[in-house]
Write a protein that binds this DNA or RNA. Structure first.
Length: 823
RNA sequence: GCCGGAGUGGCGGAAUUGGCAGACGCACAGGACUUAAAAUCCUGCGAUCUUCAUCGAUCGUACCGGUUCGACCCCGGUCUUCGGCACCA
């Protein structure tokens, strides 16, 4: 250890030492309690940005803290390395995605290593490696066999300018991410996962995820969007099929004055074909098809529709009501058909007013401001039933169940649950993804590739044009194959998987990353799972975190894993933004940690980003203040260097003699306690760091004093280095070694604090008069209440303030405060 | 429109259970050391008033009101802002 803080030298030295000693390698060890800490693995875009630094610094502090607290910690890292940017680079620069990706991985891996993160690199995985995607394909086959994967024709996002399909995430404000052209729809046959089968479990299990932020649970809940209601069958006059509708308000059935079909509803053609309405309906539908999804589903779009000329019969009162098609009813929710109750639904109300349709109230209020016979807007609040035959007088909430009962008894409907959640479209017309291991045979239909033939390797003889269909169609070697079932000529699926699949189970592969026989050994996953602490950006609150939960549940049902939920505790870090905007390559506001690391070192970078703000909060990046973190580390370095000349020889035991001793022991033990709680409990790294700063300030003050207690100082220095080490590991290793220790600070036990030292002889109490602070007093700790009150009331200043006034009340909080209420 | 956060000095932020608002750090100002600079150290740093200075007083946690001996914290309302969802029947 030099007198000067040579961070570059120190960081290089210890990174090499950790690598040589395999300090962070983890093996299963039944004798120890395990702790699995995981940060969301990155897409290898090429360069680390400050958001990554924040994410991995948080995880590293937790991993190191848990290790020092004697847990067997699994802390892995890998690459979510399939994805579109690699392919775009190929189109633009002619580099093969494989080369581009691996070059980026190498670059980012070395950047991560420069940060001194405690990863077990022997467990590294990359989703684009055949060793990984082989098992991705295997999982797909298991899902297919269980009936969780199916293929169907459906409209998908299509950019007419780029001539390609876009993922939902690639549609930004209704336009193509790359060229901005309005995205349309195209019918394509696609693979889906039946995530809707798990809707109830995904929703209900949220209640048990105590370690998850509420915000994320609410977002998932809204996304799943469970609505409980009823399905009702309406007869159509002169038509042999029934019109099935879904409603959450069966209590309003007597208020139905018209019906609406979605324009795409399969009945529409049959109902109007050959009638005088046919041309009008066709024209209306064509107009709708010209619209983008965004326009079409905008709440501000005026409600429009066309009467079909046909009628329905309300099964409750046999009333005939007209059937419309309208732009506000969507084919892909519920049954694509609704009963309209304008009195109690605002959309129906708007439509009824426009087309002059009847409005019949069936729920009444006693609010004098609302005229039920002349409504200005739909009445959606609670009330009592009217105009509803035998249901009249009932509270409408109660009536819902009665109506459902009635529907079921008379076989005209039943209770029904609908979800906003749709099945997961997993096909992508892309090259750089996992090939879907399915083969189509004219005789046998869709057949999975035999498991012993996995992986289905991505072919390399592929052209990248960015136009047209999946690039795999251009391969001369890939498409044709033999049917695994009958051996006849068959064709491979040419689409690849959505990359969200790859990231939905990587946490399982980490538990057994090198296994060539299985995706993972049951025993290994049983030892390590669940992930005890998952850390990542709040932007993944819905997609990644719900897909992973779905995978885990499906794999649980298949018997491959031992838990239904993958992530026990979740920490969603806030985004690191710059100038009010999310850091992104296209805006050009990405801040790389390189400059800070070369100027101040990785320890400073880590310390600064954790000190700047609590982790969940959004952080507007500014490097003002980096100097302060660097200054602090210099200050620590100087202090330890100076004291290392005198403390190593001192005994580890000490007796507190002076007031200064007691004070320092109080601060030191308090700091150990606070850091333990802030890091181990509530993840407030910023306050943990500030309390360490206070300890350092206190130690500087103490060592300038007259009587120096070397034993106490020794413990202070050692504890300081230990509790700082999860934040800034390199400098702490260096100081720890210099203090005469041979073992890595990482392998050293976290210090315990002395509860006794936290009990003070005297405490400062606050004296308030009428709630205003008037005086502060040092009194003996733990005085009984009456003595405490007497001392305060006999205080000269207090007596002066209250003299001549009536004391009405005295509120005394022992060891803290006393409030004298006077008049 | 619906749901969920957030709003504290010039700035990042602290106040963990209703009990001293502004910890810690940044920036700034003054001083010490130095031939000088850097580094380091010391002091000050919410606003207003008062005072030679101290001492002190009043106000102050987006805004209005309430509960309480006491409110950044609890309750009612308003505004601003961020995030999610959005003709979901």
């Amino acid at each position: 250890m030099l007198e000067r803080y040579d961070f570059a030298e120190i960081e290089k030295k210890w990174q090499k030492s950790w690598e040589d000693q395999e300090t962070f390698k983890t093996v299963e060890d039944e004798s120890k309690e395990k702790y699995y800490v995981l940060e969301m693995f990155p897409y290898p875009s090429g360069k680390l940005h400050m958001g990554h630094v924040r994410n991995y610094s948080i995880g590293d502090v937790i991993a190191r803290f848990k290790t020092m607290n004697n847990f067997n910690v699994l802390h892995p890292m890998g690459w979510d390395s399939f994805g579109l940017p690699a392919e775009n680079a190929a189109i633009k620069n002619g580099i093969h995605p494989n080369l581009w990706t691996w070059a980026n991985i190498d670059e980012m891996r070395s950047q991560l290593k420069e940060l001194g993160l405690s990863y077990d690199w022997s467990r590294e995985v990359a989703t684009c490696h055949p060793d990984y995607y082989k098992w991705m394909q295997w999982i797909f086959v298991q899902f297919f066999k269980k009936g969780l994967a199916y293929k169907k024709e459906n409209p998908v996002n299509w950019c007419p300018s780029c001539q390609t399909v876009l993922a939902n995430e690639q549609v930004v404000d209704g336009g193509c991410e790359r060229c901005g052209t309005l995205v349309g729809k195209k019918e394509l046959s696609q693979w889906y996962f039946k995530i809707t089968d798990y809707a109830d479990r995904l929703l209900d299990n949220l209640d048990n995820l105590d370690g998850w932020p509420n915000k994320v649970k609410i977002m998932q809940k809204n996304w799943i969007g469970r609505s409980i209601g009823a399905e009702v069958d309406f007869d159509i006059v002169g038509f042999d099929k029934k019109m099935k509708i879904f409603t959450t308000r069966p209590d309003t059935l007597y208020g139905v004055t018209y019906m609406v079909l979605a324009p795409e509803h399969p009945f529409v053609n049959e109902l109007v074909s050959g009638s005088e309405k046919e041309a009008e309906i066709k024209a209306f539908n064509e107009k709708l098809h010209q619209m983008s999804d965004i326009e079409r589903t905008s709440t501000t779009l005026e409600k429009e529709g066309v009467f079909t000329g046909r009628y329905c019969i309300n099964p409750l009162n046999n009333k005939e009501v007209p059937i419309f098609i309208a732009n506000y009813v969507l084919m892909d929710y519920g049954t694509g058909a609704i009963m309209a109750v304008p009195a109690h639904d605002q959309r129906d109300f708007d439509f009824a007013v426009k087309y002059n349709l009847e409005i019949i109230p069936v729920v009444e209020t006693n609010d004098p401001n609302i005229d039920m016979l002349n409504l200005k807007e739909a009445f959606i609040a609670e009330g009592n039933m009217i105009n509803s035959d035998k249901f009249n007088g009932m509270n409408n909430k109660v009536a819902i169940a009665k109506f459902i009962e009635y529907l079921e008894e008379n076989k005209i409907g039943k209770k029904s649950i609908n979800y906003r959640l749709r099945d997961w479209l997993i096909s992508r017309q892309r090259y750089w993804g996992t090939p879907i291991p399915m083969i189509h045979c004219d005789k046998c239909g869709w057949v999975p590739e035999k498991e012993e033939n996995l992986p289905v390797l991505l072919p390399t003889d592929v052209e990248f044009t960015g136009k047209g269909e999946s690039p795999l169609t251009t391969s001369k070697t890939f498409g044709e194959t033999a049917c695994p079932e009958c051996g006849g000529l068959a064709h491979r699926e040419l689409d690849t998987m959505d990359t969200f699949l790859d990231s939905s189970w990587y946490f399982l592969r980490y538990t057994d990353p090198k296994n060539q026989e299985k995706a993972w050994d049951f025993k290994n996953q049983k030892y390590w799972m669940n992930v005890d602490q998952y850390i990542g950006g709040v932007e993944h609150a819905i997609l990644h975190l719900m897909y992973s939960r779905f995978f885990q549940m499906a794999l649980y049902d298949l018997g491959f894993v031992s838990n239904e939920e993958p992530f026990k505790n979740l920490l969603t870090q806030g985004m690191v933004i710059k100038d009010g905007k999310k850091m992104s390559k296209s805006i050009g506001n990405v801040v790389s940690p390189d400059l800070i690391i070369s100027k101040y070192g990785a320890d400073t970078a880590r310390l600064f980003i954790l000190f700047a703000s609590p982790p969940e909060k959004e952080l507007d990046w500014s490097d003002a203040g980096v100097e302060g973190s660097f200054r602090f580390l210099n200050r620590v370095h100087r202090l330890v260097y100076e004291l290392s000349a005198i403390v190593p020889a001192a005994p580890k035991t000490y007796i507190l003699e002076t007031e200064a001793d007691k004070n320092l022991a109080y601060v030191m033990n308090g700091t150990v306690k606070k850091v333990s709680e802030d890091v181990g409990g509530r993840f407030n790294f910023n306050t943990a760091i500030s309390s360490i700063m206070e300890l350092v300030n206190e130690m500087y003050k103490y060592k300038e004093g007259d009587d120096i207690n070397l034993g106490l100082l020794k413990v202070c220095v050692e504890n300081l280095v230990l509790i700082l080490s999860p934040f800034t590991p390199h400098i702490c290793e260096e100081m720890w070694q210099h203090l005469g220790n041979n073992e890595s600070v990482y392998k050293t036990n976290w210090p315990v604090y002395d509860e006794e030292a936290l009990i003070k002889d005297t405490v400062e109490i606050v004296i308030q008069v009428n709630g205003k602070v008037k005086e502060k007093l040092n009194i003996t700790n733990n005085l009984d209440k009456s003595t405490f009150e007497r001392i305060v009331m006999e205080n000269e200043k207090v007596m002066a303030i209250i003299s001549g006034k009536d004391v009405i009340k005295i509120i005394a909080v022992p060891n803290k405060l006393i409030n004298i209420v006077v008049k």
